[in-house]
Amino acid sequence: MTAVSSATSDRAVALQLEGVQLQLGTSSMHFDLSRPTGSVTAIMGPSGSGKSTLLNLIAGFLTADAGRILIEGIDVGHLPPARRGLSMVFQDNNLFAHLDIATNIGLGLDPHLKLTADQKKTIEAALERVGLQGFGRRLPGTLSGGERQRAALARAFARRQPLLLLDEPFDGLGPGLAADMIALMLEIRRDVGATVLMVTHDPDEAKMAAGHVLFLSKGRIIAEGAIDGFFERRDVPELARYLGTDSSPATAAQKRPPTSPLP
């Protein structure tokens, strides 16, 4: 990999991975990357290529065997997830099912739930921001899938962390709803000034949301670049195979992402 950070100054770099390595079972991961502040990056790649592992390393759920991870210039390698300055939205289970929406967001503001009047206002504002005003006392189970993801975004909005990690957050919502959610996410990103990394398998989603793509295969970033024209590239065989744009019919089955719910 060639470094892409040389053009930007250190202050503007929100996230940097330098020679990060991890051995997971039989597969070895190796990541180098650098993303500027405020950017939205799509992370793509076939099943098992290490997309989620990459997010887990950045979030601190996994510890690298070697290398450095810097968030806003600070080496976070030994910091617990809560102190790395990030929010995260997963495909599902972002909210504790037995706690109401307001409490779920409140936990993001004060883990001991001793909320000040200001913090309570913040929760209300966040709900309003995502179009869920009045939902505070409701349990996640009574909300639709899209509404739950909005609530998760509301928590990220309320927390105002510099880094926002999204792990296939809009999967299974349907194209129309997903588009709305992406728009909402982009607004929030702008409000907060966050840098976004989003794992997705849908090129259309990536095009809507991101300005930049990292394409992973077998634990490495094998291609990256601006979103424009990225999916038309033919110089990366793995990418072509992933998108199903190569001529071999055998790869058609590969196109369906592995994360779809099992029948």
Binding site: A59, G60, F61, P81, M88, F96, L107, G108
Partner: peptide, 8 residues
């Protein structure tokens, strides 16, 4: 993961 990120 949420508990970790929220620092509960």
């Amino acid at each position: 993961k949420n508990a970790a990120i929220l620092g509960l």
